[in-house]
Amino acid sequence: MRPARALIDLQALRANYRLAQRLGGARALAVIKADAYGHGAIACARALEPEADGFAVACIEEALSLRAAGITAPILLLEGFFGGDELELIIRHSLWTVIHAEWQLRLLEQWPDVARIKAWLKLDSGMHRVGFAAADYAAAYRRLRQCRAVADVVCMTHFARADEVGCHRTQEQLASFDAATAGLGAERSLRNSPSLLGWSGPASDWVRPGLMLYGMDPLDHPSEASRQLQPVMTLESKVISVRELPAGEPVGYGAQFVTSRPSRIAVVALGYADGYPQCAPSGTPVRVDGQPAALAGRVSMDMLTVDLTDLPQAGLGSTVELWGRQIPAAEVAARCRTSTYQLMCGVRRVPLRYNG
């Protein structure tokens, strides 16, 4: 079988979740949308369910997949519902839902039966994607409390720049949230991964760790807390061919790498169709049998090439780590001028192998 694979360390996942709980001092919804950021939502949910306070996903399709797999913990729909027909499913499967728009609120008000929905009312405190304006928020909250279908309401918002430690915008958003929710007496949910790792507050009854669960640091500069994160995914494959080339030979598409000396070039069975960035430049670090090496040439759809000239002991069958415990995904992302979010969510085709 093709040797490309992603190893998923479930013990590290649990350790990162516990760190989020400690940092937040609150109940924590594990964000496992987008197939747990490429790590496999069902397997990650099963690993976390014995201790997780609940989960968060983007949409009802993701939630129903978890319910079908036997996950019974609370699940929050972060984008809420997209039509009235989803409300029946939300009630039937005991889901929680974000309410971020007037039309969603009106549908809840029109629901004829008593239900037990936990609604999370979203404030647009400055992100300007979705959510109620500050001037309309208190009235929307009071309307939700009157809905026969709603059992409880959590007030929430989302920080746009919490990954920029010290950025004044986060404090501005917090001030907006505090003003809009003053006197409501509801539970609060504000803190995502970067605000948990980089900020000492604010107080939050519910926190929503996402990227940090998978051992990725979202901060622009590491913090004491983020240094405790444990990588969950190791993306690896093996050397399937080695070429001995003289100086001056081009390697791969476009001749973007030319040997400057007699070289040993390894072909690795993994490419951009597996989620490794096509834009990764020559020199991007990898580990071959635990030893440092680097890409040499453009990444192909199914293969990439690595310079083994300084690793005479490596060769056919050697294990190559593309990111994981030895090669931080953040370093690969920086070389590719992208984010670890995109790296993780882009992993595909390779089988996921779980341990722990």
Rank of each mutant, 00 (worst) to 15 (best):
M1Q: 11
A6W: 08
Q11K: 14
Q11L: 12
N16W: 06
L23W: 00
L23Q: 02
L29R: 01
A30W: 05
Y37D: 07
A43Q: 06
C44F: 15
A56H: 05
A58C: 04
C59E: 15
A63M: 02
A63Y: 01
L64M: 04
A69C: 08
I71A: 01
A73N: 03
D85T: 13
L87P: 09
L105T: 01
R106P: 00
E109T: 11
Q110I: 09
W111G: 03
A115H: 11
I117A: 11
W120F: 00
S125K: 05
H128E: 10
V130D: 10
G131E: 01
A135N: 13
D136K: 01
Y141V: 04
R145V: 14
R145Q: 15
H158R: 07
F159T: 08
A160P: 09
V165E: 03
H168F: 15
Q171A: 12
Q171K: 13
Q171I: 13
E172G: 10
S176G: 14
L184H: 06
A203D: 11
W206K: 00
W206M: 01
R208G: 03
G210M: 08
G210E: 07
G210F: 08
M212N: 13
M216L: 14
D217N: 09
P218K: 12
H221N: 09
A225S: 02
P231K: 07
M233G: 05
S237G: 14
V242P: 14
L245Q: 09
P246E: 10
A247I: 08
Q256R: 08
Q256K: 10
F257V: 02
V258D: 00
T259F: 02
S260V: 13
S263K: 03
R264C: 05
R264K: 10
R264E: 04
I265F: 05
V267F: 13
P277W: 06
Q278L: 12
T284Y: 01
D289Q: 14
A296F: 03
R298S: 07
V299D: 11
D302L: 15
L304K: 02
T305Q: 08
V306N: 14
D307W: 13
T309D: 11
G317T: 15
G317W: 10
S318L: 15
E321G: 02
Q326G: 14
P328Q: 07
P328G: 04
A329M: 10
A330C: 04
E331M: 07
E331L: 08
A333K: 09
R348M: 04
V350D: 10
Y354M: 15
